[in-house]
Design a protein around this nucleic acid. Structure first.
Lengths: 156, 156
DNA sequence: CTCTAATAGATACTTCATTTCAGTTGTAAT
DNA sequence: ATTACAACTGAAATGAAGTATCTATTAGAG
């Protein structure tokens, strides 16, 4: 089951948020993409429909959507703070293409068991984990793309 | 085996980098901490020893250390781009305290096997993964701290 | 000691995000 | 429909984090 922009619009209203034309545009942009989107690319796409739409509105809408757990905030390679529509409702992670931003959901996460063991060993009260896989999708392997930057290593 | 500031200084020189007093200070700050440090906190601590030390120098030193794989770049909760000395030389991940930044190394990572399976299923050429656990260390559970910000969820 | 490429810090700039504020609007109640 | 108001919008100012440029300085090889 895929969350459409209209379905999300309903959820917003149910939670006491107003449904403005601007929000509807931003929603549509996010909901209709399979890729990871930066706030800036969301703004750009939204302005194709309403050129006067403000940057602040994008950030505010993302904040609301994040609060309602309707979007996933992803770190990705060299680019933190990108977003995509939440597709599986259960706990999951992502495999993101460093080339084009395409994202695949990974739902079979076995780290919660590991958390328990870690918790005992370390004395930490573990609140959660961050897991992302990154690489190149089939198309980008062939086309050797240069869109997403890939500088600087992360902890691995 | 723990990397000391002096040992790292040697590695720098072996790789053709000069060992300036400023770099030595920055090194000492990172090497003598068990916690995750933001560039800003590294600057602050370094300035306790040399108040004229510049922000740019911190970034440049971190860049060099990262290039030589002497530090780990960690994303952590709501705070990307923090650093800590690399302790195990092999592939590993971190458990980070959202309260005080304390970090524990996790060396038994089984995700590389999963990567292979994922690669076959998705058609992606997987380059790596990002995994971090976060929570509160024993001290911070008791003292209910407020140092590190904890706003906004990440993908989990 | 001398020489030079590497480095430091000052300054300016860029990018990304947040705050503030005055005017506008969705929507629930009349 | 009309009204009333809290929620919302965009412009502009501000802030935070990191980068680029330039000149003076210096680590360290010879």
């Amino acid at each position: 089951m895929r969350l459409t922009a209209n379905r999300i619009a309903g959820i917003l209203r149910e939670n006491g948020y107003k449904l403005t034309p601007q929000r509807h545009i931003v929603l549509k942009v996010i909901a209709s993409s399979n890729d990871l989107l930066t706030p800036d690319s969301i703004l750009e796409k939204s302005r194709q429909e309403d050129p006067s739409l403000g940057r602040v509105t994008v950030y505010r809408t993302l904040e609301v959507l994040n609060k309602l757990s309707l979007v996933c905030k992803v770190h990705s390679e060299g680019r933190c703070g990108s977003y995509m529509m939440k597709r599986p409702t259960e706990h999951h992670h992502h495999l993101v293409c460093s080339g084009c931003g395409k994202a695949v959901d990974i739902t079979n996460c076995s780290l919660i068991d590991i958390e328990k063991k870690l918790s005992q060993e370390s004395g930490f009260e573990i609140k959660g984990h961050l897991l992302e896989f990154y690489g190149l999708c089939h198309d980008c392997v062939e086309n050797t793309p240069t869109i997403h930057s890939n500088k600087g290593g992360t902890s691995r």
